[in-house]
């Protein structure tokens, strides 16, 4: 899966985000602990757009160990809350992109936390509702649930 999803393969020492985490590149850090670092995106979708990075270099989210995933989620929640309390924002989007096709822009995986305000012209998170053929949905259900059974019953 790694091979297929990674947008580009650059060794850790060339990873800009690893350098940011190590303090070798400047950044506007809003949070840091042993496991993760959170910085402001310098080309944000909206003011207060935060990038939450695991300190360890992982290319995609599914390969991150469970306890780090949990820590990152709890930290994202805390950051979202602080954003809502401290700047002009009435909602937040939390986004993870696995693979170039999903919009992954860097091979150091991260969580985007994006503040939203009314009429901010960001329309990429509108999840249009589409109709789907019952048969097609049924088929998808079979394929996915079978795989879930396989994995969870190992």
């Amino acid at each position: 899966m790694e091979q297929k999803l990674s947008p580009n393969h650059s060794p850790d020492d060339q990873c800009a985000f690893c350098q940011i985490v190590k303090g070798e590149f400047e950044s506007l850090k809003i949070y840091e602990d042993d496991i993760c670092t959170a910085i402001l995106d310098i080309k944000p979708a909206n003011p207060g757009h935060v990038l939450l990075l695991p300190k360890q270099h992982f290319e995609i989210f599914p390969i991150i160990p469970k306890d780090i995933v949990k820590h990152l989620s709890i930290t994202a929640k805390k950051i979202s809350h602080a954003i809502l309390q401290s700047i002009k924002a009435s909602g937040t989007n939390i986004l993870i992109a696995n693979g170039e096709a999903a919009g992954q822009a860097s091979n150091h995986t991260m969580i985007h936390i994006i503040p939203r305000i009314e009429n901010d012209k960001i329309n990429q998170f509108i999840l249009e509702k589409n109709q789907i053929d019952e048969e097609d949905q049924s088929q998808l259900y079979s394929i996915i649930s079978q795989k879930i059974q396989e994995v969870f019953n190992k």
Binding site: G91, I94, A101, F125
Partner: peptide, 20 residues
């Protein structure tokens, strides 16, 4: 991703009506 042979996946939370 494996079951459907996708090219990628997104995990997305829309938190609040302003966030859709």
């Amino acid at each position: 991703h494996t079951a459907l042979n996708t090219d990628g996946t997104n995990i997305l939370v829309n938190n609040g009506p302003t966030a859709n």
